[in-house]
């Protein structure tokens, strides 16, 4: 790598970097900063000349318990989904990384993360077909079981959780797997050679050594789940009102953009707080 010396180099560097970063600035960083500005307006400037600065939107968040309650509900949803993803995904990563070898492992790993890269809306939609009353799951279970079951899972919190776990589970598996497979086989052999059994190795070596990866996965699940709105809308029905859906409403139904901006900005603050607090872990996981 070259230290910048000549002016020619500097010009080339700027020419190569600025298009990408200017684009990111215009499309991401300026909008995010602008959101703070719009969140303290009474009305949008483009709608007319009658606008002024106000803290009303933030005051509303503090005084009307609806918003704080919904934010809390979304955080709880995030926590639930994250915990389930860890409980299901970590053992799976463990099996993939430590017991399966060679080509089979590569293929299985690819199979696990492939849905993650496919269309999330369509995957949520597919759950709607499976979970709906009289849907495939119910019919299937009734065909197999001797007694009748009526699941009524659709439009419940359970449905939302199932859909979100399905959406984000591969994150936890991906990050845990990368951390687990980076552990030197000799370390495990060394532990066995001095008498450690499976559980000791898991508890004292594999888990602590892969913890950064696991926690990174947890953060990567938690953050988008807190900001989710499409999944609760489709699978939650009337039960699916969350902080994210309220923000959506401000922009597409109620058209109170300043309030939407304020709510979005509060969510952004929460997300940035979480990311900052966990950034040492994320850095350690080297993602």
């Amino acid at each position: 790598m070259a230290e910048i010396t000549a002016t020619g180099d500097r010009r080339r560097l700027i020419a190569m970097l600025s298009p990408a970063y200017l684009w990111l600035t215009v499309a991401v960083f300026l909008p995010l900063s602008a959101m703070l500005f719009f969140s303290v307006l009474t009305a949008l400037p483009q709608d007319g000349p009658d606008w002024s600065l106000t803290l009303q939107n933030y005051r509303l968040f503090l005084t009307d318990p609806v918003y704080a309650t919904l934010l809390w509900k979304s955080l709880q949803l995030g926590l639930t989904v994250t915990v389930i993803c860890i409980l299901i995904g970590y053992p799976c990563a463990l099996v993939l990384a430590r017991t399966i070898r060679g080509r089979a492992r590569e293929t299985l790993f690819l199979l696990v993360i492939l849905p993650f890269w496919s269309n999330s809306l369509v995957r949520i939609f597919s759950w709607a077909i499976v979970l709906r009353g009289n849907g495939v799951l119910e019919l299937g279970l009734n065909a197999v079981l001797p007694f009748d079951v009526s699941l009524n899972l659709m439009f419940t919190t359970h449905a939302v959780v199932i859909g979100l776990v399905h959406s984000y589970l591969p994150y936890v598996i991906l990050t845990s797997y990368l951390a687990l497979q980076a552990i030197d086989d000799d370390i495990i052999d060394a532990a066995r050679s001095i008498g450690a059994g499976t559980l000791t190795i898991l508890w004292r070596l594999l888990l602590p050594l892969s913890l950064p990866g696991l926690l990174a996965g947890a953060v990567l699940v938690f953050v988008p789940v807190v900001g989710s709105f499409m999944e609760p809308r489709i699978l939650g029905g009337r039960m699916g009102t969350y902080y994210g859906t309220v923000i959506e409403d401000q922009f597409v139904a109620v058209y109170n953009w300043p309030l939407g901006a304020a709510l979005s900005f509060i969510l952004l603050a929460v997300v940035l707080l979480i990311l900052t607090l966990t950034s040492p872990i994320l850095r350690k996981a080297r993602l």
Binding site: A190, G195, G197, L205
Partner: peptide
């Protein structure tokens, strides 16, 4: 008998020290 029950000591090429301890 599996390795952990054989009562042996082993040293590895790259030492294989537990990095978290």
């Amino acid at each position: 008998v599996p390795v952990e029950k054989r009562d042996i000591g082993m040293m590895f090429q790259n030492y294989a020290l537990f990095p978290n301890m």
